[in-house]
């Protein structure tokens, strides 16, 4: 596994983290929130639409910065880092699975997985090997050379998971990964994500899916921009 993942203790520490936007009108998106996620933990963030689940996940994923509070990742303060530093952090530590797979249609499944590899020291053979290994993990190694456009929705989401896992991240953030899939395919995807912990990664899963709550080690419910105790 790459990156400095602590063996125990809090990987994610949010302290009074909140988000208020000033434009177009002053709006409070996320109330000041405290949250700790331990390394290797699997946390489901649930709540009604518009409650602030995705906002919380995006702050944990450093896709946007909070307007207040402190966010420490593995003991390192994230608030105040430059865009370049945050990009480097995401490249080394984080894997994302979104509601849509967002595959590049004109690339093969393997080439899409390779997009997740941002370590410049890897050579071509190394990249290919890691990508095929990640595809094997999600059961798609036979479709590695198939164009993304020719994969089904479930297969595309599996490729997206492989892309998130290929660099062995410390933290995987999955935002509604099953909402665009049928029930059976969604279940298979959830099972795959449940296995993230066995790879040593921490999982933050934003979902409406009640089945997901069963697979997560802890469920955090968020309502009206704040965590319900």
């Amino acid at each position: 596994m790459t990156g400095s993942t602590p063996g125990s203790g809090a990987l994610v520490e949010l302290s009074g983290v909140g988000l208020e936007i000033a434009h177009p009108v002053r709006t409070r998106i996320l109330q000041p929130t405290d949250l700790e996620i331990v390394a290797g933990e699997s946390v489901a963030i649930v709540g009604p639409s518009g409650a602030g689940k995705t906002t919380l996940a995006s702050i944990i994923g450093t896709l946007q910065s909070p307007s207040e509070g402190s966010y420490r990742f593995a003991g390192q303060e994230m608030v105040g880092k430059t865009r370049k530093e945050l990009a480097r952090f995401r490249a080394g530590q984080l894997g994302f699975v979104f509601q849509q797979a967002h595959l590049v249609e004109y690339r093969t499944a393997r080439a899409n997985v390779e997009l997740g590899l941002t370590d410049p020291s890897l050579n071509r053979a190394g990249r290919r090997e890691l990508s095929m290994e990640a595809l094997r993990r999600v059961g798609l190694h036979r479709l590695g050379e198939r164009l993304a456009a020719h994969l089904s929705g479930g297969e595309q989401q599996r490729v997206a998971i492989a892309r998130a896992l290929v660099k062995a991240p410390s933290l995987v953030i999955a935002d509604e990964p099953t909402s665009a899939l049928d029930q059976r395919t969604g279940q298979a995807i959830l099972e795959l994500l449940a296995g993230v912990g066995t790879l040593g990664a921490t999982l933050v899963l934003v979902t409406h899916d009640e089945r997901a709550m069963g697979t997560a080690g802890r469920v955090v419910t968020i309502v009206d921009g704040g965590i319900r105790p």
Partner: peptide, 14 residues
């Protein structure tokens, strides 16, 4: 936009 946003999320620099 989505593809480029994804690359950015995955850690591609500007």
């Amino acid at each position: 936009r989505r593809e480029l946003g994804l690359r950015s999320a995955m850690g591609w620099s500007r």
